[in-house]
Nucleic acid binder design. Sequence first.
RNA 1: GGACCCGUGGUGUAGCGGCCCAACAUGCCAGCCUGUCACGCUGGAGAUCGCCGGUUCGAAUCCGGUCGGGUCCGCCA
Length: 621
Amino acid sequence: MPAEPASLATPYRTHTCGELRTDGAGASARLAGWVHRRRDYGKLIFIDLRDRHGITQVVVDAADAPDAHDVASRVRSEFVIAVEGVVANRQPGTENPKLATGAVELQARDVAILNEAKTPPFYVNDPDAPIDESLRLRYRYLDIRREAMQRRLLLRSRLVQAIREVHHATGFVEVETPNLIKSTPEGARDFIVPSRLQPGTVYALPQSPQQLKQLLMVAGIDRYFQIARCFRDEDLRGDRQPEFTQLDLEMSFVDEPTVMAFIERMVIEVSRATVPERPIRQVPFPVFRFEEAMERFGSDKPDLRFAMELFDLAPAMTADDGRPESGFRVFDETLANGGRVKGITAPGMGGATRRQIDELTELSRRFGARGLVHLSVAEGELHGPIAKFLSVGTRTGIRELAGAGEGDLVLVVADTGERANDVLGRLRVELGARLELADPDELAYCWVHRFPMYQWDEEHRRWDATHNPFSGVVPEDEPLLTTVSGDLDDRSPRDPAGRARAMQYDIVLNGWELGGGSVRIWRHDLLARSFNLQGYTLEQMRERFGAMLEAFEYGAPPHGGIALGVDRWAALLSYQTNIREVMAFPKTQSGSDLMLEAPSAPDEEQFAELGLRFVGVPEKR
RNA sequence: GGACCCGUGGUGUAGCGGCCCAACAUGCCAGCCUGUCACGCUGGAGAUCGCCGGUUCGAAUCCGGUCGGGUCCGCCA
């Protein structure tokens, strides 16, 4: 990363507050910044002067500079002041090793108050003080003055800079795409912007530049990227905001391994440039098929910083003739009905209290399990409420399959395969956190790919794209893009299409989905077939993807790409799990901007001009 | 759409039927102090306990509603 510009001097300052060192001793200097703290000894006043570059101690001595001392005694926290003086080495024994500038101080000759400040509503100068988040959001400009926010926004700036550098160095073209576009079918609700020039019509804000970047591929921009703002009108979470930032990229003439290889190299370079001190757990990144990830980790975004894999207990419960014979009816019936009995081992949790077990059981219920069986290993035997029902063979088998040793706790879920994996996967995350199994510094990237192409939507009797409606199909599965009857409008859950796998890949970091992409359907005929399976009629296809379908008739190159969540990436690189911590001005869970007080009631004139009026709104604020 | 948690001087917390016209820390204001760096010492101001209603002889405290914030499920890539 290049160093900061050599000089940030301005008419108000010769140096920043993080710059002065002993080699400058004896020289005059002028600093400007905010009053971080003031220590008043009557005839002697210390002021810690702060800007985003650091803190420098200013000394104002009434004997040397009576006028400056007079001004300094009126100064308060967060006042903006300028100080002119002499850089001096501190007296031996009074250096402050906590400050980068701690060996020197500025002996003031002149102090000027540039602007006074009200007493702030919370501590700007205490990095550890807990503050209610709504207060921080309301006074975000003060919150951002605080060290932690400065650090995170700086990291984010470095991240975006590194992203741009890698792409520019690799032949990518940065292209901006419009924010006023047409609704695209990506599952989420659109934000709508009414048109004044064409009353009665609306634009949609992009959920992502998906279609536009594919059109850029048709346009011959063979490597495109953009740091793009995206909008989705869905309920918020710690990792979801209504507007967020994606690194969006697309490449032409590529197959799946080629795009993944580029992205992987880019991600590694960007990570190393942004947080060189954090180790990347494994390079090249591990690659899991979707099925495998679900089977082993119960998640399509596994946290690989710790193992604790799921295991299948059926082998310990099956007789030679294939019939289940664990001795515990719930297990046997589940297996007999085609379900799965799977488990996870929590190392060292064998001594868990009743209360802890109850909590885990309650969690499992919330995750959708009917129950949770727990077995602890003590003195070489399995213990637990249902241990007595289990046959000797099953008990031995469980211990082996679970890899459970003395003092471990084995948690078992019997359910459909899908649900058992899901519940255990969530338990794995929960246990990993409770047992602090993950190294917080480590960056564990991995790939998950080969997702099923479609999911059956019983209500609409159609095949929904699991990820992106433009994802391509794995070449050998191409013949599966059809229905039982061969008529694409006569769809059923038994269609071959249900078995088709997509050339879709997600990149995962520490248990979070960082991004997802695919090699696209670039052939016109396949695209039409896929849309058809997704239940779009010809008219709907023309209405919604007219430009794209048409463009694909003019020579679309094979292409693929990805979109990465920049907010999530910046958050994880900053040890945060809440993207609000890396956004300058985020919104609350109910979508409010507490600082600007948005959203707000519309201006009647604006509404009239657009031919709009609220109907059936409960009550205006 | 649903479940749960939180709301008390500027800030962070304590108090959870009467001991509370509310306690502690910090901040704020005033005074003193020439080597501090979370300076120290002395004194002072500052809260109708988010809001509305109910229960009760009595409510910060219990109940209902409402508003705001958060976590999670649904939703969302």
